[in-house]
Design a protein around this nucleic acid. Structure first.
Lengths: 147, 147
DNA sequence: AATAGAAGTTAGGCGTATATAACTTTTCAT
DNA sequence: ATGAAAAGTTATATACGCCTAACTTCTATT
């Protein structure tokens, strides 16, 4: 009865970093444009239009986006939930790198972009708490470090 | 005749995260065993022996490891340099998550493992400086956050 | 020295995520 | 209302990193 190698059909519905990027991008586009278009997703992610379709189909199959051929793309409630999580991780990470560490904004953003996928809930929760502490600690107002 | 696309001779000698993991692993094995064996690399990285060979060839072609078929594997000076960089990022990131944020050790390690590849020099330098500050700031001795 | 088992390699295959190019559908300006 | 341009799709191809299975080489014990 031990669930050894019983097919990783886990509730641990793991999304790839790429797929997470798509969700995050669609959320941003929905904010600006109310809907996301394939072409805009492609532009934001710096990939070709043709590559987007297949990924949207995957996300649709996982019920994370509403997708009909030639139609607009929107997030399902579950998709939005995930997108928001990733977006929040991005925001806090970038803030940490840029405002606290004084890393230049572009680098801070690029770094957050990559790290946001690697932070689980436990870590993120504690990271937020930590940031709040830092923000009320004048001593921790560190000087920009030298390169 | 046709001017074929001149091989993208990457100036920005970018290593994939996987390749960086190999270097990091080989460095650790060299410390313990003086040399790294294919089998031990496979075990540490939790991949199959057969997969290691191809990656070692890539690293050898980039002159980051010394590799001869059926021989031991060691890092070249350049390979060691990169391996050390990544190892240091790992150590500091894990320390931050575990000791400062009070994330459990396993999670801290897993998180560092993924983030270490996303941190450039500028960011790492400032991160280290920041950690030093934190360590001398009793106020910043935050309580463990709740999950 | 023979040989069995361990370690290493090779070949072929798979899944993911991308590109390119041709094709289809939609949109918009007239 | 129509036709060209824009947007979207499809099919095919490539790169990467992994796996499996069969094969080769090394090694350690007898």
């Amino acid at each position: 009865m031990d669930k050894k190698k019983v097919k990783k059909k886990n509730k641990k519905n793991l999304l790839s970093e790429s797929l997470e990027d798509y969700l995050e991008t669609i959320l941003a586009l929905q904010r600006t444009n109310t809907v996301a278009r394939s072409k805009d997703i492609a532009e934001k992610l710096d990939i070709k239009r043709g590559s987007v379709t297949g990924m949207l189909k995957k996300l649709a199959k996982s019920e994370l986006v509403n997708y009909e051929p030639y139609g607009y793309v929107t997030l399902t409630p579950e998709g939005r939930k995930i997108a928001r999580q990733i977006e929040l991780r991005h925001i806090f990470l970038k803030d940490f790198f840029h405002r606290i560490l004084k890393v230049d904004e572009k680098t801070a953003d690029r770094t957050a972009c990559r790290m946001e996928h690697a932070m689980n809930n436990q870590t993120f929760t504690k990271f937020k708490t930590f940031l709040k502490k830092i923000d009320t600690c004048s001593y921790c107002d560190i000087e920009p470090a030298e390169d």
